[in-house]
């Protein structure tokens, strides 16, 4: 059960990674990075339960709480360089 979930999540991560490499725009990559972050949270949780170490949920929680901060930072830098894409 946990093994199947692990394999499926790894496949999903690999697919997301393809999008992160191919782009073509920055937003595709940001989106892919965000998705891989979410999948990592899932994988940490699944691995924790599979190995009988639910303490790993703390790590998943850290990711949930702070991984989006870097996404916001990327987009802030983009907006300060190129302006808001919505405004034109």
């Amino acid at each position: 059960m946990y093994s199947i979930a692990t394999i499926l999540i790894l496949v999903a991560i690999a697919v997301g990674l393809v999008r992160a490499f191919r782009g073509p725009t920055l937003f595709d990559r940001v989106m892919a990075g965000n998705m891989i972050g979410t999948l990592t949270v899932l994988l940490v949780a699944v691995l924790g339960f599979m190995n009988g170490r639910p303490e790993f949920l703390d790590i998943a929680l850290v990711y949930v709480l702070i991984s989006f901060v870097s996404t916001i930072a990327v987009l802030r830098v983009y907006v300060s360089r190129h302006g808001d894409p919505d405004s034109d």
């Binding site: 992160a20 782009g23 990559r29 940001v30 892919a32 991984s67 990327v74």
Partner: peptide, 16 residues
Amino acid sequence: LAVTMLTSIYSLFSAL
């Protein structure tokens, strides 16, 4: 900017 995004993905993998 894409490289910084990838380095954060890289660190996700090393944490895993």
